[in-house]
Design a protein around this nucleic acid. Sequence first.
DNA 1: CTTTCAGGTACCTAGTAAACA
DNA 2: CTGTTTACTAGGTACCTGAAA
Lengths: 334, 334
Amino acid sequence: MYDVGREAGVSHQTVSRVINDSPNVAEETQRRVREAMERLDYRPSASARSLAARRTRVIGVVTFVGAFFGPMSTIQAMEAASRARGYTPYTVSLADLELDHARALLDDLLQRDVEGLVVVAPTDEQAGLVDSVLPGDLPVLALEARLPGRPLVASDNELGGALAAEHLVSLGHTRIGHVAGPADWAEARLRTVGLERVLAERGLEVVAKVDGDWSARAGHEAWPVLRDAGVTAVYAANDQMALGLLSAMCEDRLRVPEDVSVVGYDNTPESEWYYPSLTTVEQDFRGVGEVGIQQLVRLVEDRAVERELLVSPHLVIRRSTAAVPPTVVPEEIS
Amino acid sequence: MYDVGREAGVSHQTVSRVINDSPNVAEETQRRVREAMERLDYRPSASARSLAARRTRVIGVVTFVGAFFGPMSTIQAMEAASRARGYTPYTVSLADLELDHARALLDDLLQRDVEGLVVVAPTDEQAGLVDSVLPGDLPVLALEARLPGRPLVASDNELGGALAAEHLVSLGHTRIGHVAGPADWAEARLRTVGLERVLAERGLEVVAKVDGDWSARAGHEAWPVLRDAGVTAVYAANDQMALGLLSAMCEDRLRVPEDVSVVGYDNTPESEWYYPSLTTVEQDFRGVGEVGIQQLVRLVEDRAVERELLVSPHLVIRRSTAAVPPTVVPEEIS
DNA sequence: CTTTCAGGTACCTAGTAAACA
DNA sequence: CTGTTTACTAGGTACCTGAAA
């Protein structure tokens, strides 16, 4: 900085003012300083700045989720949104980590003096860990899954489940099977709750339910159970599991949607090109991320924040769902 | 730090020694200091440390790729590998950014004094940008795509293409179609080169080639062109495009693999559950990331580095490929 | 006279405040 | 209103010094 000052014929103080866009610097001086910076290829040191200014302008993003399309889209959207607001995002992926290791990484985050944190901790165990490690006075926003005492931004999974259910019911299905997500995922439970509520309102209930692990394999393995229960429609808690179902049905020489309907969840880019094209609940992954950062920044800057903000998903109807096959009489099956 | 020193009855210097695991600190003193740190809930400030020590122990990971499974797996593997070697990874995603914006983010990276950089810049334009912005003396490792003058770690895409080709040729196919990746992606070009080399060795050539954009839609739209060229097998440069092909073939009432064979590339988790289960070239996404970080760390630490390191992919044979249909005589079609 | 352990001081690269021109 | 000078702060580390074993 001193070098830049010398080069431009001003004091280091003035250089500092230029860097921080402070007023009271003559246009001309500003130009000279910037040119000097350019000539010397000078870049202010982030470490020194945050040390002196006592703020880092860094916000952390902590996720326990693996390399899947949805969560990753959300994270990329959060990174862009942070930058747009003048914060640098520092993302830490804690997927597949023992809790002890995860604890160390959270500590690393605190040492970097993040000003706030977005946490995506889908399972109850992960949420507990985070809650126990993070100091209560650090601004933390829970994303997708609840964290005790923290504001939440999430996709409305219960609504999503309801949307899928209403669609199937409106097509006349009464024997509906469900491939749910892992029971320790809050998101998965909510998607089930929405489904069951709508069915209950119609005096129906799920004919067969299998808990999967989100993988296509899980969907594939769930099918025999649902088939034996005589379902005419299946609601899978994500598109991958729906894909596994489609594959298993195909092997059974069943036609979708003529013989059985399938609804997925997420609207991943591929789901449109499954065969048949998948009816699914689309959630706005990027939108959740953007709203999340917006709320976190408000939290960091001490402004009012919604305690809970849900982003609505919507149903995308494609070719994998149709009316109940008229020829199939439930009695034949059960 | 001073507070901790006072609490433990030692100087701040000794506290620093304990933090940095330096030798020459009595067990007893060490214990006292650690306890004091615990009691005061003390955490050293990363900014101050890197300022004083003149090193950040941060390495940057720059990627231009979106939220897809392969690249994301690589990145997550790199993060874990960096941490295992004592470096903090700082990942910057430049997907969908105008070059000017990207330039600003690269600058941010330099201000943070990263000690080295892994760059995933698949298109020529991106590589050019990176090359023009990064100082020549910064350790940079090119991942997946070449960067002038920088060591490279990549999956052997040419080999992958050759593997796919050899498989199809060995099944007797001579009328092979190709859905390639975007022409400005080096990876895509190499996958094509491998294919064409093997075919040329047999006196064959690609019957029809369409450039896609990696999306399933592109595969779907490519099919009519290949079909009209009378292909009996198609090699798609990634699994998503292969999925689009499968879907289009299904709509044409064509059976895979009886009527036409399909080979994909990547072995994404879903590809096993397409219908039929996809024959595809598996690349070791995580492996590439791990080797990449290993090489970068060597570079940063001034040790010898391979100029070029290719990780071999291998073929996963599943249900989407079979021998040429004997009934189809090329003359019938063309 | 080493080795082990600890303290003292300068310095890293900024930002900030006050006094002053 | 613009800009300089000086002195100090932030939270550490590097290096030298010195005492005890």
